[in-house]
Write a protein that binds this DNA or RNA. Sequence first.
DNA 1: CTGTTAGCGCGTTCAG
DNA 2: CTGAACGCGCTAACAG
Lengths: 342, 342
Amino acid sequence: MDTMSRRTLPTTKDVARLAGVSAATVSYVLNGRRQRSNTISAETRQRVLDAVTTLGYVPNQIGRSLRLQRTERVSLILPRIGVPVNDVLIRDIQRVADQHGYTVMISVVDTPERERHMLNQLKRRLADGAIIVHGTWAEEDFAELVQAGLPLVVQRNHVTAEGFDVVQTTEAETCYEAVSYLLCKGHRRIAFLGHFENLPSRLEHYDRFTSYLQALKDHNIAIDERLICAGATTRNDAYQSALDLLRLQEPPSAIFAASDIAAVSAIWAAHSIGLRIPEDLALIGAGNIPEGEITDPPITTVGPADLDFTAIADLLFSRLANPEQEGRVYQLQWQLILRASA
Amino acid sequence: MDTMSRRTLPTTKDVARLAGVSAATVSYVLNGRRQRSNTISAETRQRVLDAVTTLGYVPNQIGRSLRLQRTERVSLILPRIGVPVNDVLIRDIQRVADQHGYTVMISVVDTPERERHMLNQLKRRLADGAIIVHGTWAEEDFAELVQAGLPLVVQRNHVTAEGFDVVQTTEAETCYEAVSYLLCKGHRRIAFLGHFENLPSRLEHYDRFTSYLQALKDHNIAIDERLICAGATTRNDAYQSALDLLRLQEPPSAIFAASDIAAVSAIWAAHSIGLRIPEDLALIGAGNIPEGEITDPPITTVGPADLDFTAIADLLFSRLANPEQEGRVYQLQWQLILRASA
DNA sequence: CTGTTAGCGCGTTCAG
DNA sequence: CTGAACGCGCTAACAG
């Protein structure tokens, strides 16, 4: 309670002195020796534990990390926050990390500057391993991290698993299927509602968009640039963009939204000008977020059939246990989920 | 590129050897000496920098932290993810941290077990300071962290700023005003749509709820427990709960939702059974999230007038610079924001 | 069964 | 202007 104790936290040495043993013994007691025949008498053990509680000693993780060459933390790097699918990812990684006694540290990395900063932090051993989701990272960045010996899992479709693991989705085919579905229903003016910021490096890797283009092309529909909308970053931006689309002289009869959030916003936009869905406007989203089940109407969407990303976390911890293994590719199967909006 | 280099990262010593200087000189060059008259010749400086790039040397943050007794990280602890207001908080804290050269690590702490784990991590010097938002933390936990010398900012209404800073809102009065507003409009059956999990320790500290109760009481309206709904944790749960409310034999004519997310879900629920808002059902939310402006109708809500939480981050960094200062209280002004839903 | 010693990587004091 | 030496807190190897 005195102000002095706030200045200097107790160390193993303090505990050792109070218990009348050496610092090593304290460590043995607290970390339970595993190898060798190093055991501690019950009496000494108790003296140490008493000293620990008396002093309120807590081991310093930094000293421990330096000695063990291991932080017991994993880093989860997200390109943006407020995307429901990331909530699930966080939940699943958290759960697996708990089981391994690891702490998860989440970082939102949404600008090139922050990317550079985080790249540096990771090379400085901020964590023992990292899961990087999408973002504008260059492939060289991943190579640098591998070079630095950091166990790494990258969720991105167009990247080669060289020294790290890659999580991919089959969204290219499924999005193609979704747009084809709209075409088969007779729609000829189909809008694309997405955002072109924070893309995985190149536009041609933006599967949801290229699939849209390809499907139209394969059905001999000319691309109308006025129907391609890039402003759907936030819910409110998506709302405005959808409104702009629907107010065109020749408005679309269907919208393929690159995210379910954008699709929900499109519903609000349609409602606000008296359009009915799907009668006046067909709508397909992407991502299969739970929210899509409670909208009016529920949203037809493409996305992972069940929202469980445990496998991604498992990849990282398996690599943590065996860092030298070859890069693996894990496929997340997407599917078209028909509901009422299209 | 050889496998050896993945085993052992270069250290200051390696850089020193290659540059033909001592490790100290490397540190001088990289950290730019401030005190004393220690300067390095341009020539030596260049040799060191060359060696750094040749080896791809990156200072090890763990060694640095141990030496400096400072991690150059701050911890942001959230009780749950997927709440839009936290997106704003993250953005603002991130920005301020960038300016100070600090890294933000976000943690989702949503169970008592994770709370205990994180309490320990913080005492182990996971970060130099922390911002803790709501959650079920006990006041003793904060005292422990203060005792451990951790600069701390807590966002919670009912807590005394003893050795740390507190961010409070005026939501108690504003929520009272909101419910009173409904009562003045003639509503007598007003439902409460909230969630009783993850509460700040005690139910009587759940301002949004107590204000609801108090307003009814002051207007001599008997509490009808069937109108008090505790299941609105996620969007989908809130939807179900709202549906249950609206299907009661004597359904409410108004709903006060403890979050805007719950309010949006209530709109969907109302739509799905053909109720119009505000004609058939009045609705007030809480939190003032941007999404409330694009719903149909836009949501009348209570919340901070402008979404800027820079001040919270400033509190932490000011305390980081001056750890011994008295605990301060910062008030976040809430207000009733009238839109079309009530 | 327990104490001594060494060193993880870094930044800094002090003597040259 | 530079280098040798020290210590941050912890744990593994080795003595005793």
